[in-house]
């Protein structure tokens, strides 16, 4: 069983990302969307937590490109290891995993 977790809140605004990362298992995917992409910016305190989570729990982390662009975050400013994907990639992730869990 693998889960696609979506997080749509900034880590600076709510604890959704923190709680999500505490409930993942190796092989899970975490997709940051809407204000959630703010947490994926390199050099940020939230980004450090993401990097630690990838190293410790073996989750894959993704960020939705359209939401990054709206918030002025270029791909080369993402935390190392976080992958930018488009809407089609979102659909693929949803299909590849057994369930989708939204952290609102």
């Amino acid at each position: 069983m693998s889960i696609l977790h979506t997080v749509n809140k900034s880590a600076y605004e709510r604890n959704a990302l923190e709680s999500c990362l505490g409930h993942t298992r190796p092989g899970d995917a975490v997709l940051l969307i809407e204000d959630g992409v703010i947490s994926a910016r390199a050099g940020s305190t939230a980004g450090e937590k993401l990097a630690a989570a990838m190293a410790e729990t073996g989750v894959s982390i993704y960020a939705l490109g359209a939401d990054m662009a709206a918030r002025g975050i270029p791909e080369d400013k993402l935390v190392d290891g976080v992958k930018a994907i488009d809407y089609a990639g979102f659909v693929d992730l949803a299909a590849e995993n057994d369930a989708v869990e939204a952290w609102l």
């Binding site: 900034s10 605004e13 204000d35 490109g65 359209a66 662009a69 709206a70 918030r71 002025g72």
Partner: peptide, 19 residues
């Protein structure tokens, strides 16, 4: 302050989110 700083960040492009 806080995430409000993102309001005046450079290079915002909203074509992908339709807003």
């Amino acid at each position: 302050i806080d995430d409000g700083v993102y309001q005046i960040i450079q290079g915002q492009d909203t074509t992908g989110i339709g807003m």
